[in-house]
Design a protein around this nucleic acid. Sequence first.
DNA 1: TTGGCGTCCTGGAGGC
DNA 2: TGCCTCCAGGACGCCA
Length: 275
Amino acid sequence: MPELPEVETVRRRLEPELVGRRLERVDIHDPRLTRPFDPAGVAAELEGERIVALDRRGKYLVFRFESGRVLLVHLRMTGQLLHGNGDALSAEDAHRRAVVRLDDGSDVIYRDIRRFGTWLLVEPGELGPYFEGRVGHEPLARGFTQKRLGEALAGRQAPVKAVLLDQRRLAGVGNIYADEALWRAGIHPCRPAGELSDAEIATLHRGVRAALRAGIALQGATLNDYRQPDGASGRMQDEFKVYGRGGEPCDRCGALIEKTRVAGRGTWYCPSCQR
DNA sequence: TTGGCGTCCTGGAGGC
DNA sequence: TGCCTCCAGGACGCCA
């Protein structure tokens, strides 16, 4: 499922291909994609727009247009953005939810098996209010310090993993990278967030950033559905320390990795070296 | 304000 | 072989 490293990988691949291009035709096949707005209306508004920048905020892809409008694309669980010739990209694919024809004749295909993904067209000046209170610190930004992480965790009785997954506090961390970050930090995912010491917060701060950077360096993790815009798989799944490795030995201490459930999510950890 | 749970959604795995 | 049930999880709404 696309988290910060996967979304950033998609952004980096698409940016040189899409910036400067005009949207000639937009076909949105899934009425759920643009809820609560009419997909035909959204498509009509998008046609003719020129992309001037492609950014990322948390797990959102931010398409900025010449008019000042912004299209926010969230891939959720199984969303994919593919770029190429639409006819060659399996036109019969039942999971195609939208197709955008660009002015160079290429296509951007949006496919989504579980249909959780969303497209939201935001008017100039509305992006800030939309993100306000909804999307928290960027964990790889220069300003995300150990102090900022400490503030996000302070006073919370919820499991530390649940707080890492809370996008209002930390943007972009999902189930995979939360587990991987906690393993790197040697912290048990069920520990109450507010009880971590300053030293543990410092270790977790390094662990979160290291896990996310590793994911970006390996072009994300491909488990089932995530693909890069050219269809290639990521390689992070080959470097997982705990996620999905229940019953296998821990790389650090050799104890068998266990699985539990935290915040309603499957959670893998080492019972020996994560305290 | 906080934390937990249900909902949306579909494909795959496992059981019978 | 076919059918049924369960599981996976990001964001959001609801409730205690």
